[in-house]
Computed example of a mutant assay.
Amino acid sequence: MTLLYFGVGAVILWMLVRLGRQTERAGRGHWRIASTMMAAALFVGAVIAAARGVWIGAGAMAAAGLWLTVASRVRSTRSRPIDPSRMTDAEARRLLGVSAAANRGEIQAAWRRLMARAHPDQGGTQGLAEQLNQARDRLLKG
């Protein structure tokens, strides 16, 4: 019986930690809270079913709880199309940190230096990388 209480307590602790880490825009946050609570209820049910020896039911409830947990963590990656004509030359130069007299090589070097830090594979964000690409394209084509 102690193991049952331990399992239920662990599920409740997981739920509280997960709910405490909710940082999402308003429309998505409600889904996460509801799915976390439902997943916690399924995990508690799985613990109780396993304690009573109903292994198939426990496995099914645990799988459903795990699916809810993973599904609520998936974030949409919709990105808005970039309009290169909206960025001015001055904004592009300020973003890349180059002067008005910078030549093609200096623009490329500044872009490489900044992209090494801003690329999503290096821990940067998609939006900043897109802005840097847009600034480089604006200056090299203009």
Rank of each mutant, 00 (worst) to 15 (best):
Y5R: 15
F6N: 13
G7L: 10
G9E: 13
A10T: 06
I12W: 05
L13R: 02
L13M: 14
W14Q: 01
M15N: 02
M15H: 05
M15W: 09
L16K: 03
V17H: 00
R18N: 09
Q22A: 09
T23C: 06
E24R: 15
E24M: 10
R25L: 13
R25N: 13
R25W: 10
R25Q: 12
R25V: 12
A26D: 10
G27D: 13
G27N: 04
R28L: 11
R28N: 06
R32P: 00
R32W: 12
R32E: 12
A34S: 14
T36A: 14
T36Y: 15
T36Q: 09
M37D: 01
M38L: 15
A39R: 07
A41N: 12
L42K: 07
V44F: 01
V44Q: 00
V44E: 01
G45H: 10
A46K: 05
V47S: 02
I48R: 02
I48G: 02
A51I: 02
A51K: 08
R52S: 07
V54R: 13
V54D: 14
W55H: 09
W55D: 06
I56P: 03
A58L: 11
A58P: 09
A58D: 11
A58G: 11
G59L: 03
A60E: 11
M61H: 01
M61L: 14
M61V: 03
A62W: 10
A63V: 12
G65T: 08
L66T: 15
L66W: 08
L66I: 12
W67Q: 07
L68K: 01
V70K: 03
A71W: 01
S72Y: 09
S72P: 03
R73S: 09
R73I: 05
R75Y: 07
R75W: 07
R78K: 04
P81M: 11
I82Y: 08
I82N: 03
D83K: 06
S85E: 14
R86P: 00
R86S: 15
R86A: 12
D89L: 15
A92M: 05
R94A: 14
R94E: 14
R94P: 00
L95Y: 08
L96I: 08
L96H: 12
